[in-house]
């Protein structure tokens, strides 16, 4: 990649067009690929996974004009090839060792307050689902989850994914709430 290459609006438009000719569809695909690259770098144990994903996207964008004519296949897999190169460079930079896990949030009371606020923003059904799904332990939990899935008429795995999405939205909401309070 050329040094100091900056993602311009024009290059970004070309990238989106390569992902899909429909602009909205391309935007969604772009977000999906970015989110998944972040997860891939995180799962490889990289710190700064978001930066590495953005670096990957920038590098793909810088090559897309020359690549799009000859490349065949899902563009997401081209991102993967570039991501592998970025990862090798990351490893060569000698990444910092893992910092100890801090399970204790800075202010538990504030986090509880934010959780209450965010749970209140959910629909009644989602609120009750996420609380029931993650509550209890062992057999009681398994049985409870089976009952919830049965009540909703969905497969256990679909319930698992639904609960996970609600939990992810709660995480985003709580983080925003905590940030807002810190300002």
């Amino acid at each position: 990649m050329k040094k100091n290459w900056v993602l311009s609006q024009e290059a970004f438009d070309v990238l989106l067009d390569w992902l899909d000719h429909d602009r909205d569809q391309a935007g969604r695909r772009y977000e999906e690929i970015r989110e998944r690259l972040v997860r891939i770098f995180a799962s490889r144990g990289c710190s700064g996974a978001t930066d590495l994903a953005d670096e990957t996207i920038n590098r793909v964008a810088s090559k897309v004009v020359e690549v799009r004519e000859t490349y065949s296949g899902d563009p997401a897999l081209f991102f993967y090839v570039v991501a592998n190169n970025i990862h090798k460079e990351y490893l060569r930079r000698k990444p910092p060792p893992a910092s100890p896990i801090s399970t204790s949030p800075p202010n538990l009371e504030k986090q509880f307050y934010c959780l209450e606020q965010c749970l209140d923003q959910l629909s009644h059904e989602n609120r009750s689902l996420v609380i029931q799904y993650y509550q209890d332990d062992k057999k009681a939990k398994i049985e409870r989850r089976r009952q919830i899935a049965e009540r909703l008429g969905i497969a256990p795995n679909a319930l698992r994914i639904r609960a996970c999405r609600i939990r992810a939205s709660l995480l985003e909401c709580v983080e925003k709430c905590l940030e807002f309070d810190a300002d």
Partner: peptide
């Protein structure tokens, strides 16, 4: 090691305690 997973751990801790 990753910040993304650290976020999940911190949130999970508060959430389960709640």
């Amino acid at each position: 090691k990753s910040d993304e997973h650290q976020r999940k751990i911190q949130f999970g801790n508060g959430f389960l305690q709640y």
